[in-house]
Amino acid sequence: MAHKVQAVVVREKNAPASIETILVPDPGPGEALVDILTCGVCHTDLHYKQGGISDDYPFLLGHEATGVVSAVGDNVTEVAPGDRVILNWRAVCGECRACRRGEAQYCFNTHNATQKMTLEDGTELSPALGIGAFAEKTLVAAGQCTKVDPAADAAAVGLLGCGVMAGIGAAINTGNVRRGDSVAVIGCGGVGSAAIAGAKLAGATTIIAVDIDDRKLEATRKLGATHTVNSKDQDAVEAIQALTDGNGANVVIDAVGRPETYKQAFYARDLAGTVVLVGVPTPDMVLELPLLDVFGRGGSLKSSWYGDCLPSRDFPMLVSHYQQGNLDLDAFVTERITLDQVEAAFDKMHDGSVLRSVVEL
């Protein structure tokens, strides 16, 4: 049978997000039906709305979610009805060349539900990142569900489903930040702030936050930043070098994703240091660097996809750190809203007043 539920849909490019009745089928083989508890409002959802991901409208928005499994299809062993889960968009296949070489965090064939959710007239929906969680229920591949402790605050831990995991993982997985390292993070929105929290969790002792917004910089101090740099007022590279004995940071994370900020990251790292790009560039951006500088400075230039995470490994571990007080996920929840406030939450992204608005259902 199909379940009629309320959900947030965008029908065409730049159209307002609207509340619609959608039809969600019962799970088939390998699928899970999930009752959504919370879902964060992420920039990726805004990119879908604006046509920056694809033009496969209408989109069912939302993907940073927690929920409770209400039903599973045949051949599902990972989760069972009643399980509290965080949804993810890296349901690894176990069979592709990345999985076969033991690097499932780079899986090239992640799974989504086979069946389609639809509008009442039968129009098929494209769920954001294969999830579509601004809805009372959603249908996903069972591998997109990671079981976690139900005692943890759903609104906080659900943010591990995308942006917060991307930032933390950029530090601990991609950047391999170690105890005693110096780390600089350029861009202190949700992902950059999470990278700062990740650097603290990994044991970095000098953590430098760089942004042009003093409000964001002040907020990073609560997450672990030991120093802040407003790059409107001072040169970011010079400031980072000055705070690291003239050497540059061991790891510099670009959470903006522009040629200008990447160059800052490149020149602000120590010799043989690491640059991590986790901010997402647009297709038109081009980077130019002297090849001799790339050679002469050594080290590593890395890109971080979803924080190079494995949800089955990283989500429970980070939830445990949250419950022990080592990771302040509550700090990322700026406001708790309802489904009909999603469009207004998109507007708040532009003024820098929120890290995350979280829909509670």
Rank of each mutant, 00 (worst) to 15 (best):
A166W: 04
A171E: 01
A171G: 02
V177H: 07
R179K: 12
R179E: 13
D181T: 12
D181V: 12
S182M: 03
I186M: 00
G187Q: 03
C188G: 00
G189K: 02
G190C: 04
V191Y: 08
A195Q: 08
A197V: 09
A199N: 12
A199L: 06
A199Q: 09
A202W: 00
G203S: 10
I207G: 06
I207Y: 04
I208M: 09
I208C: 15
I208V: 13
D211W: 03
D213V: 14
D214Y: 14
R215N: 04
K216M: 00
L217S: 06
E218A: 15
A219G: 09
T220V: 09
L223R: 12
T226Y: 03
T228W: 04
N230R: 04
N230G: 05
S231W: 10
K232M: 11
D233C: 12
Q234H: 04
V237A: 07
E238W: 13
A239W: 06
Q241T: 13
A242T: 08
L243D: 00
T244D: 00
D245S: 15
G246Y: 06
G248A: 10
A249H: 03
N250R: 11
V251T: 06
D254M: 02
A255T: 10
V256L: 01
V256G: 02
V256R: 00
G257W: 07
R258G: 08
P259V: 05
E260D: 15
T261P: 01
K263S: 14
Q264E: 13
Q264D: 13
F266V: 07
F266S: 04
